[in-house]
């Protein structure tokens, strides 16, 4: 068996899951399908276990926040993006799952590919998307006591940092150890 073309992969999934493919698209020889989160595990297992597709490797899990760029096929705010690779056959594919803003839960693919473990953790950390079934969904890169999800489009590039927690002393000003009202004194950088 050899590598399939992108059209052949879409065709194979379409024939098996009639009507479950919400949209398809692609650019420069790479295609993707958009599927509903309820069908995610079923379709993933099919992609992994079918001999002619055999996507035995999950290369990456990430997400895109569509707040500032609405696209036709994904009206929801977020889309979780899975990059699939077939080690044996050598083809690649992409699967997108739309996630609405008010209910950011997606089933975890931990049981299908173990690689989802940290990939989902990072996506959770950066976008606040919950992966139902991931055994260890703690924050990965940000501190555990951090609130906010940095890669969301409504999160500013610059904001209050740790140094804003301390009182700032400028030349010519008297240092007042009693005064703890640092909130008014520190210039907040916001964009």
């Amino acid at each position: 068996m050899s590598a399939l073309s992108q059209e052949a992969i879409i065709e194979a999934v379409k024939s098996q899951f009639e009507g479950k493919i919400i949209a398809e698209g692609g650019h420069n020889g790479q295609s993707y399908i958009v599927i509903d989160r309820d069908d995610l595990i079923e379709i993933s297992k099919y992609l992994k276990e079918t001999p002619e597709l055999k996507f035995d490797m999950l290369s990456d899990v990430t997400a895109v926040d569509h707040l500032l760029m609405e696209v036709d096929e994904i009206p929801e705010r977020y889309a979780v993006v899975y990059q699939l690779t077939s080690f044996e056959l050598g083809h690649r594919f992409r699967v997108k799952v739309p996630v609405p803003e008010e209910d950011t839960v997606v089933p975890s693919l931990y049981e299908v590919w173990r690689a989802a473990s940290w990939g989902e953790r990072e996506t959770h950390d950066m976008y606040g998307i919950e992966f139902d079934g991931n055994p260890d969904l703690r924050r990965l890169l940000m501190p555990s006591d951090y609130d906010g999800f940095p890669l969301r489009k409504d999160y500013p590039l610059r904001g209050r940092g740790e140094r804003d927690d301390f009182q700032q002393i400028r030349r010519g000003e008297d240092f007042d150890a009693e005064d703890q009202s640092t909130e008014e004194q520190s210039p907040h950088l916001t964009t």
């Binding site: 650019h27 420069n28 790479q30 290369s59 990456d60 990430t62 895109v64 500032l68 760029m69 696209v71 993006v81 990059q83 690779t85 690649r92 992409r94």
Partner: peptide, 23 residues
């Protein structure tokens, strides 16, 4: 607008991929 790409390369540690979405 709306195009996207995932390009894997072989870095010394393994597959280094860049996924870029353009608006």
């Amino acid at each position: 607008r709306g195009t996207e790409i995932y390009t894997p390369t072989e870095a010394p540690n393994g597959e280094l991929g860049f996924y870029i979405v353009s608006d």
